[in-house]
């Protein structure tokens, strides 16, 4: 690993991993509390030569929408959004996500903000990418305490969308819909399969053949974009994140 690459932060690696999954799409929307996916979407737009349209919730300059807060959901319902991002205080092995509480929801041990648009967009948007930087047995659990939105549904339910992958601070999982399970796809620098097994509360599948590949690091020119124009653009919606990652404007 070169010196330049060793300085890649986990967030930057996650941005690059997510950006790769957005290649070739037309319209990507980014919801609340999503600075890493937001940066990834802006990076993917830069790499697309401007063909990818990015909608960032909370942004006031250069709006994509003109019909208020409902338009994101109506636009998704019309099939005009190709990818979206969700996280969870807990995510389980069937890709169920919990954004609400730990313990009994009536007397929770911990309460979190709430489900936002997940209980709709998870069903509707074809490629939903899950992200959670903290990869521990506390966040990646065998069964979530509260289902904000389920990873899979009955056959008869209208569900053009669903989970595509899970990006963490340690690795990339792909979601295999037929098996209703995650497949370990690649390991971030310094991680072993044993690390992932120890830090993951759910069972997952291993790739066939020899070993698990390493996660591809961001290209040097991607890093320049992330730390340059992408960082400045994400600052409008996520000033604290941008300052922590890239310094003051």
């Amino acid at each position: 690993m070169s010196d330049v690459m060793s300085e890649v932060r986990t967030e930057e690696l996650m941005i690059a991993v997510i950006a790769r999954m957005l290649s070739g799409l037309s319209h990507v929307a980014v919801g609340a509390a999503s600075p890493i996916p937001g940066s990834a979407a802006l990076l993917a737009r830069e790499l697309s030569g401007g063909t990818l349209r990015v909608t960032l919730l909370g942004r006031t300059s250069n709006p994509t929408f003109t019909d208020g807060a409902r338009e994101l959901f109506d636009c998704a319902a019309q099939g005009r959004i190709d990818a979206f991002f969700l996280s969870g205080v807990q995510i389980d092995g069937q890709a169920n996500i919990n954004l609400v509480s730990i313990g009994d929801p009536d007397k929770p041990k911990a309460r979190f903000p709430g489900s936002f648009g997940s209980a709709y967009l998870y069903y509707i948007v074809p490629r939903v990418i899950l992200f959670r930087q903290e990869h521990t047995a506390r966040t990646l659990v065998s069964k979530v305490d509260y289902v904000s939105a389920p990873g899979v549904s009955e056959e008869n339910l209208y569900r053009p969308g669903g989970p595509h992958a899970l990006v963490t601070g340690r690795c990339l999982f792909e979601f295999i819909k037929d098996k209703e399970r995650f497949l370990l796809k690649s390991l971030h620098p310094g991680q072993t399969v044993e690390d992932i097994k120890r830090e993951t509360g759910f069972d997952f599948d291993m790739p066939e053949g020899s070993g698990v590949p390493n996660t591809e690091p961001p290209e040097p020119d991607w890093l320049k974009l992330i730390r340059g124009p992408v960082g400045e653009e994400i600052r409008e919606v996520y000033p604290e994140f941008a300052t922590r990652m890239f310094g003051s404007s």
């Binding site: 209980a119 709709y120 967009l121 069903y123 289902v147 389920p150 549904s153 339910l157």
Partner: peptide, 13 residues
């Protein structure tokens, strides 16, 4: 009517 929601604890509660 609204799509989504079915199978969530939001709906169950």
């Amino acid at each position: 009517p609204l799509r989504g929601l079915i199978g969530s604890d939001i709906l169950a509660r």
